[in-house]
Each structure stands twice: as structure tokens, then as C-alpha cells.
Design a protein around this nucleic acid. Sequence first.
DNA 1: AGACACCCCTGAGAGC
DNA 2: TGCTCTCAGGGGTGTC
Length: 275
Amino acid sequence: VPELPEVETVARQLARHLEGRTITRVHTHVDSLRRPLQGGKLRADVEGRTILRIGRRGKYLVVELSDDARLMLHLGMTGTFRILSRSQPRGKHEHVVFSLADGEQWRFFDPRRFGMVESFAPGQDDWPPPSLAGLGPEPLGPDFHGDYLHQCIRGHRQAIKVLLLDQRLVAGIGNIYASELLFRAGIRPGRGGRRLTRPACARVVCATREVLTEAIAAGGTTISTYTNVDGEMGMFDRELLVYGRGGEPCLVCGHPVRQRVQAGRSTYFCPRCQK
DNA sequence: AGACACCCCTGAGAGC
DNA sequence: TGCTCTCAGGGGTGTC
């Protein structure tokens, strides 16, 4: 399940593999992913252009091309990228194929098709699109701090865990890291936003930075299908303290880890360590 | 406007 | 062994 650390890992690898290379052809093999795929627009915007820079914003990948064209990509739940020789037969679920000038291909693989591949033409005013413009600050950047979080969530009766998943508040946190960071902060996921003091917000911010930084260093988490561009799995799974451990003893105090559902998603926490 | 339910989709795993 | 069922959770839309 790609969240910020997984997307960051992929962005760095794609940058290393692809920056400076030129896209000659684009082929789409399904009509839509999360949204309809605009094959014609994709070809017009991307073919013949050189990949200058690949970065990340929240859980989105942003590819800057020559002539000020751009690609915006999202991995959804099961999206991964592969860089393969043209002679390698196209596999099932390889929905978008970018052919490179040197005979290799950059392929987007996504069984559940929750991902996104969209392009932006030079000289249009549709950049940045709403899905990027509406994102909150980067959790590892200077704008995400205790006072900011406190200001955002004071007065909200919604649970802190649900608030942290709102990409407008802070960009890049998903279901796995939300449970993990609240465990490290010692705060119950069900606590209403308005019931977090300023120091508690500072602890949440601190725990967020720690967890995400460690996860990036480990190359992300592979809960089910995520692999990086080289086909390797993330190593952070072994460092998860509560996620996926419902009923098992807390690694700090031994009390059983509890699992509950919040806003339709599984949440894990230790009722003894988290208040 | 805030809070919530529901939808898209496939594969893994459980249970019978 | 093979079927059916549930669940995973990104982000977007619709409703109250």
C-alpha cells in the first residue's frame, strides 16, 4: 500500500533510472484507471519529450518534461513501475507503456486500476490540477509543525487518526503510518481532534517525522503488493509496531493490540500505551 | 460545511 | 481440490 515513504522510494529510483531519457512512444492498454485514460492527449503531451526531473508531492509522482510538459502519476493501491527491455512481453495489468529512445520501456503495472496517469501540455493553465493544489503541507517539510496541526484540528470532533488521513491537512500519510505514528506519539487514534493539547500535537508531528523518515530509510513497507522499481520489497514491515498485529501482544507492554474500524479503515493501537 | 457512506477494482486468504 | 466469501484502502463523489 503505497504511502509517502513508498512513493518517495519509487520517485528516487525513477529519477535515477529515467532522468535525461527521452520518451518516444506511449501506449495505453485499458480505457481507464481511477479516471478515464486520455491516450491521445497523453501521446500529444509526452511523445518526443525528455524526462528532466521526477519528484513527489504527497502520494503523487510529478514528472517534469522538456518544453514545460508534465506527467502526474499515482500508484493507488497496487500500482508499481517496471523498466524493462522492449523485447520483454507485456504482462497482465501492464496498462501504460512509455517507450524510451534506447529500446527500454517504462511500464505502469496496476491490477486494481486505482492508480492515475495524467499529462499536462505546455502553456496551459491547468497546472497544478486540483488534486495537487489542494494538498496540505509535506509532513517532512517546515510547514508541518505542532502549532499548525493544533490550529487545524482544534474544534474538530473527528478522530485524530481520521484527520491525519485527510490529505488537505497534511499530504502523504496513509492508513498504515497513521496507526504507527499515533502509537509512537502515545495517543489513542479515536481521540477527537479538539481534545489534543498543543504539546500532544507537537508529539504527533515529531512521531510523524520519525516514522516516515525511518520508513524511507528502509525503502518503505510491503504489506501486500508494493515493490520498488527494481522489484524489491520494502523492509519497514519488520519495524511496524502495531499495524496488522490485532490481538498480538504490544511490543512495548505486552497488552493485546486492539483493532477497530474508523471511517471504514482498520486502525490498530495499544490501549495501555496510548491515552 | 462537516461528517459519513459508498464506489471503483482484483487477488489473497479463510472457511467450508 | 475447488468453490464462495470477505477484506485490503487509495481518492473521489454524493447525501444528509
